[in-house]
Design a protein around this nucleic acid. Sequence first.
DNA 1: GTTGTTGTTCGACAGTTATAAAACTGTAGT
DNA 2: ACTACAGTTTTATAACTGTCGAACAACAAC
Lengths: 107, 107
Amino acid sequence: MSTRTVTPTTLTTREFELVAKALSDPRRMALLEAIGSATTFPCHQLCEQFPVSKGTISHHMKELLRAGLIKARREGQYIHYEVRRETIAAYSNELMRRMGQPGPADA
Amino acid sequence: MSTRTVTPTTLTTREFELVAKALSDPRRMALLEAIGSATTFPCHQLCEQFPVSKGTISHHMKELLRAGLIKARREGQYIHYEVRRETIAAYSNELMRRMGQPGPADA
DNA sequence: GTTGTTGTTCGACAGTTATAAAACTGTAGT
DNA sequence: ACTACAGTTTTATAACTGTCGAACAACAAC
């Protein structure tokens, strides 16, 4: 069944590192999950739901953007965020690939 | 068709955080890959192949152990490390699950 | 224009961490 | 016992980072 014509979406070494880094902070991971819980998520709601300052929220959003884990869209007064699931999938795949095949060379 | 033998291997919240943290450092990720490149890997070879002190290697191994990403086995004078691929798979699955995607049951 | 709301950026601070170097523990073979 | 090698723990340091708060910028409505 797996015609698998979807985008491969590979990650460069740098992107892989940025994603890993972005996912490593529990708060940032929670923010990402919150954004992913809806198709889009306005930023000021994040500020309401998490006990951190808006400066901190903004900082985390910047990191998630840098890693390509979310995309932002200005909607008049507000900014809406959306999870880029391809990036998550690509990171997951790359992770498995790097751990994938044990080489023949065993000491 | 996979017969679903064992290892549901779910991760607790804490384990999930530890794995994410452990994977976030490029050097540590590289060490994990090196260990995974063979079925087992003696520690002193890691010290040779990476330009870091053995104290630093030991520190990283401790973190990887804490995250459940490797297991260690004393072999006389040496210590052999082995990648716990179930943990990687469990982390990957949990990541996809949290983002509302079905994990790749067999990829 | 002014005012209010939303988000960014800029110090500053506290906690974390990757690293080395030295001291220490353990293990193997003299 | 001693020597050599393998790995851990301790100590110190430099760099990084999550956080706040305040200043700033952008936008909407007045």
